[in-house]
């Protein structure tokens, strides 16, 4: 992570497109009167979905919509690394390089991306189609290594499958998200390694005996209480 600042080159203006404006309205309406500032994060996300990244005019517009100072919105936008402050490609590839992914071969995945796209980490292709970034843990360690492209998680990737995904994206197709090695969700790749035998029913409890023991204890206690104190 490094110091997060607004991009030097900024568009002149920003406004939510009608469908996004409608969603923004619904989001703001979720919060009680006077607490509209709570909507700052969903609105920044909305702006990012529309523009691809969070622009300075967007920050100003959101600040105005929520009756906040621009600096307060900037604080939020710079705090969370998932808000992109610089233009990204249409397909924004975020490869996890944290420990579990790295142990499972994320270096090869990063290398494949670099080679395939001809760009380095934090860069964008000249045609604006792809950008590449390494990110901290995305929480899919079971399926390491993984890469996030847009909203989709591509899990259990390796250099080959990563190349295939990029090729598909280049052709304008929508590659299938999720594990790329045939794994079902986070289940083991081969056979089950535990709980392999048929489940047995739980042993039945002798309710009558338990009740008798309880009644006896109760009677004993009553007798003890009734006995004259010596």
């Amino acid at each position: 992570m490094s110091v997060r600042q607004l991009a030097k080159e900024q568009p002149d203006s920003f406004s939510f497109k009608p469908e996004y404006a409608e969603r923004a309205k619904r989001i703001i309406a979720k919060y009680p009167a006077g607490r509209q500032a709570s909507a700052v994060m969903p609105l920044l996300d909305l702006a990012q979905r529309q523009e691809g990244w969070v622009t300075k005019p967007a920050i100003d517009v959101i600040a105005q919509m929520l009756n906040m100072a621009s600096i307060r919105v900037l604080e939020v936008a710079t705090f969370y690394t998932m808000f992109e402050l610089h233009p990204v490609g249409k397909h924004h590839i975020q490869v996890c390089t944290n420990l579990p992914c790295q142990l499972r071969g994320s270096d090869a995945v990063v290398h494949a991306c670099k080679e395939k796209l001809g760009i380095g980490l934090g860069e964008r292709t000249a045609d604006g189609q792809f950008s590449l970034m390494e990110v901290e843990c995305a929480g899919a360690c079971v399926n390491a290594p993984m890469a996030q492209i847009g909203d989709d998680y591509f899990e259990d990737v390796d250099a080959t499958s990563m190349r295939k995904i990029i090729d598909a994206l280049k052709r304008g197709e929508k590659p299938k998200a999720g594990p790329q090695n045939g794994r079902v969700h986070s289940a083991p790749l081969g056979n089950f390694t535990s709980l392999t035998d048929e489940p047995k029913p739980a042993p039945m409890q002798d309710m009558a005996a338990a009740k008798a023991a309880f009644e006896k204890a109760k009677a004993d206690a009553a007798a003890k209480a009734a006995a004259p104190k010596t």
Binding site: S2, V3, R4, M68, A69, R72, L74, E75, T78, F79
Partner: peptide, 14 residues
């Protein structure tokens, strides 16, 4: 005047 703020986080807070 709401003009001062702390941007970034952790070690990169400014």
């Amino acid at each position: 005047v709401q003009e001062l703020g702390a941007t970034g986080r952790g070690e990169d807070m400014e």
